[in-house]
Simulated assay, not measured.
Amino acid sequence: MTINTLQDFYKILGEITENPENVVFRGVKNSSYKLVPSLGRIYDKDGYELDLVKEKLLLKVFKHRAYPFIKDYKDDALEILAIGQHHGLPTRLLDWTKNPLVALYFAVEEEFSTEEKDKNVFSCVHIYQDSKKVKLDYVLDPFSVTEVVRYIPKHWDQRIIAQGGLFTVHNNPYEPWENENLSQILIHKDVRKEIKKALNRFGIHPGSIYPDIDGIARHIKWLRSNIH
């Protein structure tokens, strides 16, 4: 499925999202990117995947050094992983959103590189529909999951709230996730800029996606660069 306008996006959403409560979205700049968590994209100095021992060591060091900021969650490994993921720590979590417009924004947020512009590259919004609802009080050991599960973090950050953020927890972070309930909406490179402008008119822009001073500055910079 390919879109050329924001109206196309709305139409496709209406066709494929029968139960909106159980649908989540993930926007990516390049549709060739696999659904692999950030941990699954790093390797040790010898080029090997990080095993469970090394992965847990990452979390242990993060807990130790970030203690003043995470002490309220010090006994909740999953919540601390979510905080770490939010701040750039490689984890077995993958970011999603409940808001399709937020996902569409992330798909068109960054400019294509010169190489990408020269190729027939598409941006993408991944859609995952699950028959089961996510429980807010879901308790699990992230290192013992046997399948990919969804997880909604506590609202400890304004960005989580603004972005309608949640995560999938992956049992094998190095294996690209494939599932019969996954689908894609492709966005051609020629319409990315116009879609981003349309989203801005609907209030989806850096100032709302990142509700802090950085987001405000990014939005002003973008507005100035797009005034004709």
Rank of each mutant, 00 (worst) to 15 (best):
G88C: 06
K221C: 04
K29M: 12
I204E: 01
P153F: 03
N200W: 11
D51S: 08
D141L: 11
D214V: 12
L223A: 11
E147I: 14
I187L: 03
I213L: 15
N30K: 12
V121D: 08
I16D: 03
E21H: 13
L89I: 08
N30Y: 10
T91N: 02
Y210M: 11
L101Y: 05
L140C: 13
H155Q: 06
I216C: 09
R41N: 04
Q158M: 06
F122T: 09
T17E: 02
K11C: 09
E180F: 00
P211C: 09
T146L: 08
N30Q: 06
D8G: 10
F112N: 10
D137K: 15
D51F: 05
S113L: 05
E55N: 03
W96K: 01
E15H: 12
T2E: 15
S131M: 10
V121I: 15
V191I: 04
S144H: 10
S225A: 14
F9K: 02
N30D: 15
I83A: 02
K221A: 10
I185H: 00
N19F: 07
D190L: 15
K60R: 03
D51C: 01
D8Y: 11
V102E: 00
V61M: 04
D157F: 03
G215I: 04
H228S: 11
E180I: 09
G203W: 02
N200K: 08
I80R: 01
F62S: 04
A217E: 02
I83L: 07
D212V: 06
V108F: 09
N226S: 14
I185V: 12
V125S: 05
Q163V: 04
H155A: 11
E147Q: 12
K29C: 11
I3E: 01
G84T: 07
L199G: 06
G207H: 03
I42C: 06
A217K: 01
W222F: 02
